[in-house]
Design a protein around this nucleic acid. Sequence first.
DNA 1: ATTTATTTTTAGGCTTGTCTAAATATTTAA
DNA 2: TTAAATATTTAGACAAGCCTAAAAATAAAT
Lengths: 232, 232
Amino acid sequence: MKNNNDILSRAEENYLKEIFHLSGKEKDKVSTNALAERLDTKASSITDMLQKLKAKKLVAYQKYKGCSLTGSGEKVALHIIRKHRLWETFLVNKLSFGWDEVHAVAEELEHIRSKKLIDSIDQFLGFPKFDPHGDPIPDKDGNINYQESKIKLSDTSVKSIVEVVSVNEDSLALLKYLDEIGLRLGSEIEIYSRVPYDESIQVSIDCGDSISLSKKVTENIGVRFKSKMTNK
Amino acid sequence: MKNNNDILSRAEENYLKEIFHLSGKEKDKVSTNALAERLDTKASSITDMLQKLKAKKLVAYQKYKGCSLTGSGEKVALHIIRKHRLWETFLVNKLSFGWDEVHAVAEELEHIRSKKLIDSIDQFLGFPKFDPHGDPIPDKDGNINYQESKIKLSDTSVKSIVEVVSVNEDSLALLKYLDEIGLRLGSEIEIYSRVPYDESIQVSIDCGDSISLSKKVTENIGVRFKSKMTNK
DNA sequence: ATTTATTTTTAGGCTTGTCTAAATATTTAA
DNA sequence: TTAAATATTTAGACAAGCCTAAAAATAAAT
């Protein structure tokens, strides 16, 4: 049960992290092009790196067939994600950063190598379970509490009332926009109607005015079902 | 007065920092070999990098004549040192790290690029003036309070009583040893005698038993004069 | 003032992680 | 089921930052 514990480069860590994110809960194979887009590199670079990561037994990879993480690859990925999310929580809870300001910095901090440091931060924060965007934080052994019954806002049915539990942090512009319209973690959203043509929905946020949200927005918001709207 | 604000690599930042440390308060020229030893690389690598840093106007350098920092080079160096020392202070004051555990981690943290982050940490710590090893922390404008009348323990005269105000953090082994013999920041040291042959000195620490300290140790400890010993 | 020793620089190479362009698989569509 | 489109891989190149070995400059010693 020996871990191939060579020290990994930043690039290698980022590849593993993105493979984890892209393969999702269903552990799908991840395609070269999908990785290239997320990592903002060319497909040929992806191929090179996958061969390297395969040699280190961190990913399973076959030519033309996509890749997935091995056990130890997933362990590394979860550790990076743990660090990323703990640092974000630190920035927001202790240093009063806005939720739209933390992602870029956490992308750097997640590569700091001290185990003692991140475990101390975890303790300092009181062992938080979720980060400021509502995503679950893996514990020191890599266990992650996937949130029960979380769905995308884009997948909800009309006349529902839901609670916002997570937001995709990748787009700074999105986070700023949500801030502007007053949509935050815990907000209550009532879905009035859906326009089939563009899949935009008409909603109110925390009982505010009715507002339209595009598909592009709603597919990046995670919610939990609360109740159906009462007809009055 | 425009700053050549290309983003610098980690390596470049480390070179600038070491040039700053080696050139000292007197702003001496720094030799290629001295840098090579501190940075644990070969002299030829130093030459390469100095040419690059010269092109970026961060160091003044002439073949065979050593180098020194330019104004903007020094500014960068001070900013790295500020970050290093603030992170060390954070680790010790907020996360209960030992003073011998913080250096390695701070070597990584000092390269995190967010200005807002480090200024927030500064505020979070209450704008400390000195780090856990007694070294002064540059403020956000790069001003540094060199400690008044600090000298090396190796340069003290016998029959003096001095207070420890700083310790060279570079050697982990030294910090562990000092911890062992109970020498810490603020300790009071009485110097009984000096052996001319090896320049070791005989001292007591905080009124404890007499102990011998080698030159190698005493030249890495900064002290401030308190008083002469009373003859009784 | 030469010779010897030391320091520094040059020249050429290696690895990592990227790129472009061309070749090859796979998938989709006719 | 063959042709067109798309996805992926290979081949060759490049910059950064390091290396070794050899050449050149400086410093030390006779």
